[in-house]
Design a protein around this nucleic acid. Structure first.
Lengths: 199, 199
DNA sequence: GTGCCGATGTCACCTTGCGACATCACGCTA
DNA sequence: TAGCGTGATGTCGCAAGGTGACATCGGCAC
């Protein structure tokens, strides 16, 4: 810290492209290697060849590095809701199935690794819940834009999201490899059955 | 820091009873007065006549001071599930209605104030989501203890929780004052209708 | 009284997250 | 080529969250 400090050390490649992507990759690696809590933001930035402060300029917080995909998810959901013509619940289910095909299919291993990280940390679980909530809000808004009333839109979205959550949990669980789309359809059917059973 | 430090200032009442309750009350007041983020843990502890370190010994973190009731909620839910005899979905609905009567009824104003605090902070929203998730897990476990299979228990719980969430949101929303129990029954009916509609 | 023990205070520390400011790399223009 | 923006980055400092280690106090058993 006192020797050799007159710096020719500024070979440091400022201006590397895709800082955001490199930070996401570094975070993912480190979370897998050491766990989320054992990884500091400085570690992540360091591995990406950047500074801690830069990380915080690109991500709201440490958790956010794991959730960059959710914006895209939201777009696909909203677009599908807008384009699909059917009953409210069916529209929502269709939207989630679209997402399952376009985004999740072919990425089972990646998703499982990611999910393992999330499940290892309460903080990340909370963030995931919040992201899901944000998705729900987007779908509800898209439904309302089609002229549905608030309460129908909300309930259709919430129940569709429930179906997705349950199907997703089964898909990610180790063992099976049934396509997520199929699981969503199955669970939707089960939901109909369970709610209409007389108690 | 250098003058008058020989302390007779230890009049400080160590050993005041109900430290936990006083901290919760102080936190609630301060969150309402200044907002969650503008309140430091030291502020809360100070108002309760205690030290920051003591707060952290009684609560896992700053958010937790607002969620002490959820343990009791969990007990009531689990007990009702165990005692009620009906179809899985109906059992879950019954449990949430019991909670609505025993815990929420007569506290609308308090609940609204609390909810206003929560909605003002993303951090608190995340924590609320997590608490809800924990409740869901407890109900699922109680259902499984009655002999139901994993997937039925999960789906019944999740859909019941969805009904509760929607009903709760309507109840807390300003304006109405229909009892929460009634709202839960209404929403359950709506859910049956919406899922069985042909798309 | 003596001594144990649990609840509390004190202190030091690391990390998160952010504001303020200095720098660097690049493109543009004369 | 020099000079000048401009935006992305690094550096510095700091408030607050959260925790471990240790000192201290109050009561209680003996």
């Amino acid at each position: 810290m006192s020797q050799c400090d007159v710096g020719y050390h500024r070979r440091m490649a400022r201006w590397q492209p895709d800082a955001r992507g490199r930070l996401e990759a570094a975070a993912f690696e480190l979370f897998r290697e050491r766990g989320f809590e054992q990884t500091t933001v400085a570690d992540i930035a360091g591995r990406a060849g950047l500074d801690k402060r830069t990380f915080y300029r690109l991500f709201g917080d440490k958790r956010e590095a794991l959730f960059s995909g959710s914006a895209h998810l939201e777009e696909v959901l909203a677009k599908t809701v807008a384009e699909t013509d059917a009953g409210p619940f069916e529209v929502v289910i269709a939207a989630f199935r679209r997402v399952a095909e376009e985004i999740f299919a072919d990425r089972l291993e990646l998703v499982r690794a990611r999910q393992a990280i999330i499940e290892s940390s309460p903080e990340l679980q909370e963030r995931e819940l919040r992201k899901t909530g944000s998705l729900v809000a987007a779908v509800t808004a898209a439904l309302r834009a089609k002229g549905l009333d608030e309460s129908t839109a909300t309930l259709a979205t919430e129940s569709g999201a429930t179906v997705f959550r349950v199907a997703y949990a089964r898909w990610v669980a180790p063992g099976g490899d049934v396509p997520l789309t199929d699981l969503i359809a199955e669970v939707a059917t089960e939901l109909r059955a369970i709610t209409s059973a007389s108690g």
